[in-house]
Each structure stands twice: as C-alpha cells, then as structure tokens.
Design a protein around this nucleic acid. Structure first.
Lengths: 344, 344
DNA sequence: TATTAGCACTCCAAATCGATGAGTGCTAAC
DNA sequence: GTTAGCACTCATCGATTTGGAGTGCTAATA
C-alpha cells in the first residue's frame, strides 16, 4: 500500500469528515478555510489532485468538489477502528426494557437502534445449530394429536403438534418420554443423526410406526430453527433520508431485500463464519456481498451467548454514515445483549 | 342519493374503466371514440360536466381530462359487488403449497397474493380471543424453571418458561396440572377473569405463592396472543409501480405503516368488528381509517374457521386498482384458506 | 523548491422561454 | 337535444441562458 505523508492524511481526513456532515462534494476552498493547517486553496488543490491519483477521492464530474472513494472510506474506518481500542466510549445507555420473550427483546432492539441511528437495522436470533437439547416432552392433547415440546439450552422452546392415527396410551407415552430425554439430552442439533434415530426407533420396539413419526418430528422440530435463521428488521424507510439512495428504483430494491430477508440471512451467515475477533465488521460499498447494497455501507457486530451460540446485529446506511456513532452503538449493544440474553 | 340516467351511467363507467387501464385523465374525445353509444365529443363534454357537478369525477386541473372521484369509484365498486353474486369467477387456482405450520402458510399466502396482484398485501392470523383452551401442561425443566404449554382450539400452541424459586415436586406438579385442566378447559380468553383466578389460587392451597405466579403466567400466555394480533405482509414495495403513490414522501410513510404493523392491526380489528356478510369489504380513499392510505384503496376479506375464529386478508393498492381481479382473488382465497386451516 | 494569487475554463443546476398539444367551455347552427 | 367550430387554458417538454462553484494551469513570490 502507498503511504500518505501526514499532510495528505490530514487533508483526506478533513475531506471525509466534511463530506460525512454535508453530503455535498467538498472543494479546495472549504478545506483551506475550515482546517487548522493554514494553506491556500491552491495548495490544497495540488494535494487533492495527488489524493485523487492515489485513488482515495473522486470527482463526481469535472469541476465539482471531491468525494471519498471506497478506498477513502476504508482509510477512514481503519483509522477509527485503531482509535477505538484506547478510547472510552461515552454514549448514554440505550434504553432496552427487559422483556421475557426473546422475540420481543430482539424486535425492540432493532427498533431502538434504528431510531437512535436513523439507519436501517437488522438482527438475527441466536443460531441454535450449536445449542443443545435440554428437555423433551410429549403429551397427548386428544386422541389423534400429540404435542411435542423441545426446550433448548438458553430456554428456547419449540413445539409441534403431531398427528397420530391410533391413540397412544399413557404408559407408552411415559416410556417414550423417558427414552427421548435420556437419549437426546445434551445433544446438539448436528449430533442428532440418522444413526441415532434408527437406534431409537429400534429401542422403541412395539410402537415403531407411531414412534418413527414422533422421532422424525422431534428431529425436524429442532432442525427447523436452524434453517430459517430468524431475522428482525427495522427502519428500512430511513434510507429516504439520504438522497443518494432515495431514488425510487434503488429504494424499491433496497426495501425489498429488507422485506424478503433471505439475502440478509445469507449476509449474516457469511459474517458469522468470517469473524475477526473484535466483533465489529465494516463493509463498504462493493465489499458487501449483497448486490442491492453496493451503494451502502454495512456495519455489523456479533453478540455471543457463550457455548458457540452467536447472533448478529447490523446497520445498513449510506456510505457517508456516521461510522463512529454506529460502531460505538453496536459495540455497546453487543455486550448489553449478550449479558441480557445469557441471564434469561 | 341522486340517480343517474342510463346514458350518464354508461359514460361514467367508460371513464372509470379507461382510467383504470391507462392511469391518465380521460378526455371527452376518447370516450366518444371507444364507446358503443355514438355521440360526439361535445355531447360527452356536456354530460361530463354534469357528472362533475354531481361529484363523480374531477379535473386534476383546468383543461385536463377527468378522473374518477372517490364517489365515482364507489359507484363502480358497488356495481361490481352487485354483479359478483351471479357471476362465476374463472381465475385459475392460486397455488398454495400445503405446509404444516400456520405461520409458514400465512407468509406464503401473502407472498403469492402480492405476486399475483402486484399490490401490497397483508394477512392477520386468526384471532384467538374467541378460541378456547383445549389443554394445559406444566412440566419441570430444571429446578428453577417450569415450562407451561397451552394448546388452544385449532391446535395453536403457546408456551412460556416460568421461573420459580423453590423446586416444585412431581406430586404437586401433577395436582396443579389436574387443577388447571379441569378448570380452564373449554374456556375462552375472555372467560378467564380475575374471579376465576382467585378461586383457583385458593383451591391450590399450600403452594399459593408459587401457584399464583404460575396462574398469572398462564393467563398472560393466553392473553398474549390476543393483544399482539399477528400480521404478515408482503409486496409493500409494489407501490413504486404506481407513480401516483411513488413520490418518496408518500412511499416512505406507506412502507413505514407496513413495517410497523400497529396501524394495520387496528385497521384489521376495525374490519373484523364491522363485518358485512359477503366477507368482502372495499375502502376507497378517505373511507380507510389509516391516514397514510388516503390515496389508496383497501380491499379486505375475512376468512372464517368456524366457532367465531376469524382472520383477515387485505390488499392495498392505488385507487385505480383492478377491483374486479382483486375481489375475485380474495373471495377465492378466503374460502380456500378457511378450508385448509380447518383441516389442520 | 514549495506556496500562492490570478485567471480562463468547465460543467452542473436552476431559471426562463416558447412551442406543442390535449382538453375544455361556450356559442351558434342543425 | 346534438353537434361543429373556435378561443382559451394549462401542463409538459426541450432548448437556451445564466450563475456559481470548483478546477487546472501559469506565473509570481518567499
């Protein structure tokens, strides 16, 4: 990478900051006036010309001011990241009411975050693929319906009604409950494989047919939560606040990806795989894998519930978003969320 | 109401249909050419002038063609409604895969509908306020957590983890289960009142403190589903297809109400209360109670699962929507949905 | 040699102007 | 009652103009 001398760095930094505030291309005269280094606009112009050649800034058209390129933003963000470690952030607590249901909590979190930042936000529920079974219970609701309830680590509950042809008597139900609990307890989803299932079927003996169905359904119940990576979003309409994203073509596509959520899900699983360590990631423009977000930046944080259970919070906004505020918000929230959810 | 002679009716009808197709204000000459009544544009002009005075059509500005007013649309829709009864609709089956989970089913329905009509759609899950308790089960997950599961009529399941200080032994758990099932079985949410709750508490005797919490939580669990009227939406971004709704101000507000859903919920409960009988309602412009939809029309259908359990499907689009298609779609879907859900 | 002042040049954005054409209302004739 | 004809209105579109912000280059300066 090409090194910038200190003056160039200062100028670049000033350009970016100014652009973040105003959203307008910034000219040499502006920098010359609002910066501590006392240089004439002409000198700044020369330096800007260099910076452009190096790829940090671009001109939207000849004889307009300069705006940061993706490379420029990257420079800015990396510098922020470095600063962040020493610095003590002083944002006021984000007010999150403690609620019982995780779903409500997550919905509230995205909402608060969207309000606070004025960008679009998303959050994924903790992925259960690595969570393990804590408790299984089958009970007869009526003659033809058995209710199966599975409690996972972290007290997440999944349930399902199973249809059976013949009623199952109490004794067998009890047996089955025992069998399931002793064999499934403590297992993660990935550990419940076909081998185990056939083994259980055999052990179940006489009621094999009914039991097969029950077992399959239990496995399915648990797996369900794995595939459908639950995602909550908020503030998608905030993009209308940023003219560079608000033309109806782009806005429509953008909000669609928020409505559909599949693409967000793939984005999130990408992120959770390639984790850095600090827990905060920034994707600028093209760096994001989602086509409709080429003009945006995505900032994400992974929150951690221990035992390998993770979820992701994300903020999507214009490239000229207030990275500092966003990163502070996220890193605070990520810790807060982790500790709240662990307690539940 | 003022009666229209036949010729006026025909002209009005022609104006509306033409406008629905083109979205452009329609002039006297157009009507004069494309209609079976052979009249010159001048005559049409005179009639149009009358129709305007009567409030059925308006001019967006002097010396432009006419467009239907809300009153005009109302005339058109009422006429459609009347025709609808005799007519056999011949739309091809909307393809809905049968899935196990109601949630998935509903999500799929709104999606299919949005795709098919190219408008924004919403659906409410069946309201449980009139549904009754079928089965209650408490089970000890570990020393400090009791899992309560409530199955409602229609096999809808609600569950909740209750924290308790002291472990509850098996015997007491069993007693409690008996108590709850015998007393709550068959009751609707509205029938579970404070009196009943205190009565149950007394009967529970020794463990009153723990039991109070359990009972409260059960009641709360059931009520939860009542307040939070679950709503699924799709195709909100379709409004960008209709220029008259697509300016960023309006679009932003519109999509916001779709994102938030609270307002939709109140709209839906309004609708479910004031039901007509045919099951299809049309709200044109100002007739809708939601502020952000003054420029839209809302068409809804109530689907019925029997026993007073109802849900609502809705389509929101521009006033110049294809009412016929929309109404046909909805009335077909409403029946289909009813029968699918009843079977589950 | 680095910095600066000055000036010509570029280009966008907003304002202005006129032409076009669709559509009306009115009047007078049929 | 219907129609032809005509003057008038008004939104839309394109071309033109203008103003201003900003650049690049050159020559002068420290």
């Amino acid at each position: 990478m090409d090194a910038l001398d200190e003056r160039k760095e200062k100028i670049l930094y000033a350009i970016i900051q100014n652009y973040l505030e105003t959203g307008e291309p910034v000219g040499s005269r502006t920098i010359s006036k609002n910066s501590e280094l006392n240089l004439s606009s002409a000198t700044i112009r020369n330096e800007m010309s260099d910076l452009e050649e190096l790829g940090y800034i671009v001109q939207p058209h000849t004889s307009a001011g300069r705006i940061p390129s993706d490379k420029g933003y990257r420079f800015y963000v990396d510098r922020l990241m470095a600063e962040k470690d020493q610095e003590v952030s002083d944002i006021k607590e984000l007010m999150i009411e403690k609620t019982e249901k995780m779903e409500k909590l997550l919905k509230q979190v995205v909402k608060v975050l969207a309000n606070n930042t004025q960008y679009a936000t998303m959050i994924s529920a903790p992925a259960l693929s690595k969570s393990s079974v804590k408790f299984v219970q089958l009970s007869a609701v009526d003659e033809h319906h058995i209710l199966s309830v599975v409690v996972m680590n972290g007290n997440l509950v999944k349930n399902k009604i199973i249809e059976v042809e013949k009623p199952l008597d109490n004794e067998n139900l009890l047996k089955l409950n025992m069998l399931l609990n002793t064999n499934l307890n403590g297992l993660t989803v990935s550990q419940i494989n076909l081998g185990l299932i056939t083994m259980l079927k055999e052990q179940a003996g006489i009621h094999e047919d009914i039991i097969a169905q029950v077992l399959n359904t239990v496995a399915e119940t648990i797996k369900d939560s794995d595939e459908g990576l639950e995602i909550y979003t908020s503030g998608a309409t905030n993009i209308f606040k940023y003219p560079e994203l608000a033309d109806s073509q782009k806005a429509s596509e953008f909000i669609s990806t928020f409505e559909e959520k599949e693409e967000l899900a793939s984005l999130i699983s990408d992120i959770e795989d390639g984790e850095t360590g600090t827990g905060i990631q920034v994707y600028i423009g093209d760096e994001s894998p989602i086509e409709t977000m080429k003009d945006c930046s995505v900032v994400t944080a992974t929150y951690d519930l221990g035992e390998g259970i993770k979820g992701t919070i994300g903020i999507i906004g214009p490239k000229r978003m207030d990275y500092k505020k966003v990163m502070d918000n996220l890193s605070q929230l990520k810790d807060q969320l982790g500790s709240i959810l662990k307690k539940e």
